[in-house]
Simulated assay, not measured.
Amino acid sequence: MKLRILILLGIIVLAGSCKEEVLPKPKAMLRLDFPNAQYIDFKSDCDYQIALNKIANLKQKPDCSMAIDYPTIKGSIYITYKKVDNNITGLLLDAQKLTYEHVAKADNIASKEYVNSGEKVYGMFYEVTGNAASQAQFYLTDSINHFVTGSLYFYSKPNYDSIYPAANYLQKDMLKIMESLRWK
């Protein structure tokens, strides 16, 4: 009798334990919240001035180039300044070549022309999609005296799906830099 009760109890336990409740996974998206951008005018002894996001740390070099670091986002915008000395064609070709070196890893490179004729600032903005090393680049010039380039890089191996929100945020800062640039 005891054996029958144990066998019956074992069958009940085994039958009850085989049932697995299936729960669907909820849909989720990565959400990164960045602070609303607040800009301050950055003025220096260089031949240009720009507006910078308050969350950025600026590292300026003596040649008027700079690194604009965003430690909380783990990315940087690198700005390079060069004087134009009858070499505008070469500077333009170098800036475009730098952008199109990312073609091998990029899914797409979209370009937007930038013109601010009132301030004599002309250039191009490139948005790079895909797993390229740089997600955005730009150049600005007055075609006579000044030439500025900017490139966006992250401190990690590029994985576009993961860095997209941060890239989008920093691209807006790059556009603000372009719009605020004034020659001295």
Rank of each mutant, 00 (worst) to 15 (best):
L3Y: 13
L6V: 15
L9Y: 09
I12H: 05
L14M: 10
L14W: 05
A15D: 04
S17K: 03
K19S: 11
K25C: 10
M29K: 13
L32T: 13
F34M: 06
F34Y: 03
P35F: 07
N36R: 12
A37C: 05
Y39Q: 08
D41T: 06
F42Y: 09
C46D: 11
Q49I: 13
I50W: 03
L52V: 10
I55Q: 10
N57S: 12
L58R: 10
K59D: 12
K59Q: 14
Q60T: 13
K61H: 12
P62G: 11
D63S: 10
D63G: 09
M66V: 13
A67Q: 15
A67E: 15
D69P: 05
T72V: 15
T72D: 15
T72E: 15
I73K: 06
I73R: 05
K74G: 15
G75Y: 03
V84E: 01
D85T: 14
N87C: 00
I88V: 09
I88S: 02
G90E: 05
G90C: 04
L92C: 06
L93E: 15
Q96S: 14
T99V: 15
E101R: 08
K105F: 05
A110Q: 13
A110Y: 12
A110G: 09
E113T: 06
Y114V: 02
N116F: 01
S117C: 05
S117F: 04
S117G: 07
V121T: 04
V121L: 01
F125K: 01
V128D: 03
A132F: 07
A132I: 09
A133F: 03
Q135A: 14
Q135G: 12
A136F: 08
F138G: 02
T141S: 00
D142T: 03
S143D: 10
I144F: 10
N145E: 07
H146E: 06
H146S: 08
V148N: 02
T149C: 04
T149L: 04
G150E: 01
S151H: 05
L152V: 07
Y153Q: 05
Y155D: 13
K157E: 11
K157S: 11
S162W: 07
I163Y: 04
I163W: 01
P165V: 09
A167D: 07
Y169G: 12
L170F: 01
K172W: 04
M174R: 02
L175D: 05
E179N: 04
E179W: 00
R182W: 02
W183N: 00
